[in-house]
Design a protein around this nucleic acid. Structure first.
Length: 133
RNA sequence: CUUGGUCCCUGGACGGCCGCCGGCGGCUUCGGCCGCGGGAGGAAAGUCCGGGCUCCACAGGGCAAGGUGGUGGGCAACGCCCACCGUCCGUGAGGACAGGGAAAGUGCCACAGAGAUCAGACCGCCGGACGGCCUGCGCAAGCGGGCGACGGCAAGGGUGAAACGGUGAGGUAAGAGCUCACCGCGCCCCGGGCGACCGGGGCGGCACGGCAAACCCCACCUGGAGGAAGACCGAAUAGGAGGAUCGCGCGGCCCGCGCUGUGGUCCUCGGGUAGGUCGUUGGAGGCCGUCCGCGAGGGCGGUCCUAGAGAAAUGGCCGUCACCGCCGACGAGGCGGCACCAGAACCCGGCUUACGGGGACCAAGCUUU
RNA sequence: UGCCCCGUGGUGUAACGGUAGCACAACAGGUUCUGGUCCUGUUUGUCAAGGUUCAAAUCCUUGCGGGGUAA
């Protein structure tokens, strides 16, 4: 491969407002693993775009996971897992990662494996869900 | 050495690769790219106080409500800090204290107990003029004992958290500040201290229980809300006000009037939702030196710039060293860990709570010289 | 992030500063052939730590936990 894989994760590749999150939750599809739940939505091409390019990430960590230090750590791990796996995933997908509640620390290798496995599974309609009201 | 007390410091170091956020500079096809340097804490926490800042309210004063409460000082201010005083705790180093007023008033003090604040008399102690009853000795006069009523007393017993001050002596029928000494208490005087208070002397002769984190009184302080404060810009859609023009109706025409859920088109205006910009990072700032001060702290000089997000930036992988644990002899070496409490959201000063490590000084006990 | 409120057995609630009650639940016994109903009895509590007071669920301070509210 001539060019190195793009492993950067700037703000443009993040879900940042309520509008985007609501779209993924309402029309996306879910897949669950033992470390996290994935909600994925194949984004429609914007006007002027031939095909959607960048896949984007959203993270949702509830207060049940503990104090601010532990929650921040979790978000960083989830971002890192997505950052390193993104170029192997289908393009043009909005993904929300929701960690499960577990008492022990989350290993990065496990998170990377589940992201790589669950995102395609969700896109194939593994666990289709009715849109929420 | 052990146990304990006080005060202070600290919260790994260096480097490589891949990323994140914002700053400056350059380039740009305006999407972004490149370079340089910056990027969590001592508690960032709890939100318990005090300020700055913003908006609202406000002539002045009083009342209400809330807070603080030894004295002097520090501070922008404080309920914080320092020094000192008093009381209590500790063998001690030291520690704790909302620590003004209970002779301005109101209220409360359960249970127990005779009596709980205008104190009180159950058991008891004592007295003798009375004379009631019973009774011993005696021939009798009379002498005596017990009970009752009457009177004196509050020492002792007992209750209680607390009983019109404590201990001792004198005194007395028994007693009692009744008297005396000491202590306590109150008042006055003298001396020391800016003061809280301290020391000494005299007098009084006990009168003054506790609770004000009960109401309250006194002194001092406080307007309310909070950065999601607040200021500005502002789509789409819906709706409002004004104007121009066109159409229709009344009318012969102009002017004018009308369009009954107030006609069409265009323009202007203000309000305002989504969203955005500012507020928003340099300050009662840190460090060093020096002077003043017991100290908290202050003056002067020099020097440094130190996060700024908005579904919310500090992460991942790796190496060397330091540190800790285990196996080796605490050595070489090997293996493992790299912590704990915890994450800035307007900013400061404190307090409180959580937590890893280290140092200095001091006390008591033991041991050695 | 700011502001506000609350805390009593397993649950819902009472208690001028003076014995922590009440109802349901739970458990045991009785009644019954068995279960239910009913009767009798028992267990379990002041969120924690300090302070004030003779005495604290109550008053004060600090902490902990839970809830509400402001786009």
């Amino acid at each position: 491969m001539a060019t190195k894989a793009d492993v950067r994760l700037p703000r443009a590749r993040r879900l940042l407002n309520q509008h985007d999150f609501r779209a993924v939750y309402q029309r996306g599809q879910r897949a669950g693993g033992q470390w996290l739940t994935v909600v994925a939505l194949r984004r429609r091409p914007r006007a002027g775009e031939a095909a959607p390019t960048e896949s984007r990430l959203g993270v949702s960590v509830s207060k049940d996971h503990g104090g601010a230090v532990r929650r921040n750590k979790l978000k960083r791990l989830l971002r890192e897992a997505f950052r390193l796996e993104r170029h192997l995933l289908p393009a043009g997908v909005d993904v929300v990662l929701i960690p499960r509640q577990r008492p022990e620390n989350f290993p990065l290798a496990e998170l990377r494996a589940e992201v790589a496995r669950l995102v395609p599974k969700a896109l194939q309609g593994g666990e289709r869900r009715r849109p929420r009201p």
